[in-house]
Design a protein around this nucleic acid. Structure first.
Lengths: 120, 120
DNA sequence: CACTTTCTGCAACGTTTGGTTGCAGATGAC
DNA sequence: GTCATCTGCAACCAAACGTTGCAGAAAGTG
């Protein structure tokens, strides 16, 4: 268990601009760097660099279309990223639950063993 | 729905060192910067900076204990972070599922209309 | 064909962030 | 009192995110 997280993949989706980029491509289909930059508060070059990062970790793939470079999401890789999010989330969630349970147990123990100071 | 993600919170847990830090504190309880740096491949100062970041977004809280500064996780805030992970994950997951379903539908349509070229 | 538009890629530069080393101060242990 | 250790601050380096500027290539239009 505790599937080891891929730090490269994680930090790729850790950047807010890259997350928005993935959102845009996911909702409207493959697009070019210029087209995407028009819908984000960053320049075309910044978008191009982010797409290069996403491409390096396999989250998007690029295909030439006329004079454009059209980027689309790699569904399998994004699915892996989603799995990692769920994995870390559930791991922390489990620990939080365990801590809470332990705290309740301690509380109960102190209540039963010494029913003295605390009124009620 | 589509709870807006808190970029500060997200980027706080986006760093691999900070994630390990949270893991360590979660599993072994509150600890000092010096103690934590002994279990990570970074210096005490780097750990201190990361703890400051985590403290700024409320993921940990600090309490003086003797001459130490002891850091513990804020369970409510970590729970919120986990919820955001789950939120983004399920959003992407839903879109991937929709895309896949659409692709299958198109495939089926082309199969029924022209049952010719592809041999099974 | 020539001209303009609009894509792209590359280079230089500035700022923030993650990391280091070095040093001074404060506090617990002996 | 002395020593060990934990803390905080400052300087410095490298990588990442963002910008501007410029040159080249491909599509559209006269």
């Amino acid at each position: 268990m505790t599937t080891v997280v891929d730090d490269d993949l994680w930090s790729a989706i850790g950047d807010p601009t890259r997350r928005k980029l993935l959102d845009l491509i996911l909702s409207d289909g493959p697009a070019s760097a210029s087209g995407l930059s028009g819908r984000l508060p960053v320049t075309r070059q910044a978008v191009a660099k982010h797409l290069a990062v996403l491409d390096r970790v396999g989250l998007v793939h690029v295909a030439p279309a006329g004079r454009e470079m059209r980027y689309g999401v790699d569904e399998a890789q994004l699915a892996r990223a989603v799995a990692q999010l769920a994995d870390v989330g559930s791991s922390w969630d489990a620990r939080l639950r365990r801590i809470k349970k332990l705290a309740e147990a301690l509380q109960a123990a102190s209540d039963t063993s010494t029913n003295n100071d605390k009124k009620e």
